[in-house]
Simulated assay, not measured.
Amino acid sequence: MMWMLRFLLFALIIFAVYSLTKYLLNPKRKLELAHEQKRFYFFDDENNVHKNFLLTYKGVLFEGEKYLGTTENAFEVVSIFIWPRSVSELKGLVKEDFLFIESKIREHYSSAKIDWKSPIKEFLEKNDPEYPK
């Protein structure tokens, strides 16, 4: 009976360590933490084109929709549409912030054309008539 209790206690400790590790390494939790701390974090499943990516920057949560297409050599993500989850959180962001976000997305999807949805699209076009590049 004593061996069984020891085994159950050992199994419980292993399960607790496993659960804690799984929780700490969860990318969704990291996204939420970065959003609260107003840091940049990019959350994406690059192997699943149908799944939208999320990113947070300066306390604003953005969602991006990926579209698969052909390039000269392969099938890749060729178009991305990005929008903020809450437009009211955009207060204080400047053009350089959106260009920074675009550069971070291009690190993952170099051949993709990035399009912003309203009102960011109008903001970027108003401040730079030659936008998009």
Rank of each mutant, 00 (worst) to 15 (best):
L93W: 03
F98N: 02
L8W: 10
Y18K: 13
K117H: 11
A112P: 00
E130A: 14
L12F: 12
D115C: 10
S79L: 08
E102Q: 08
K58G: 01
N26Q: 06
A112F: 04
Y41Q: 10
H35N: 11
E63Q: 14
P119V: 04
D45M: 03
F42P: 08
I101H: 01
K28Q: 12
V49S: 14
W3E: 14
K22I: 12
L9I: 13
W116S: 01
N26W: 05
T56F: 00
N127L: 09
L54K: 11
H50R: 15
S118H: 09
E76C: 07
F100G: 02
F10M: 12
I82Q: 02
E107N: 09
K113D: 09
K133S: 08
L99E: 09
E65Q: 13
K95W: 05
F7A: 13
F98M: 04
T71R: 02
F7I: 12
L33N: 12
V60S: 00
L55D: 02
V49K: 13
S86V: 07
T21K: 08
F43Q: 13
F123P: 07
Y41I: 03
I105E: 03
F100S: 05
S19F: 10
N48D: 15
K95Y: 09
R29Y: 06
N73Q: 11
E96A: 11
E36S: 13
I120R: 00
I120E: 00
L31G: 04
N47T: 10
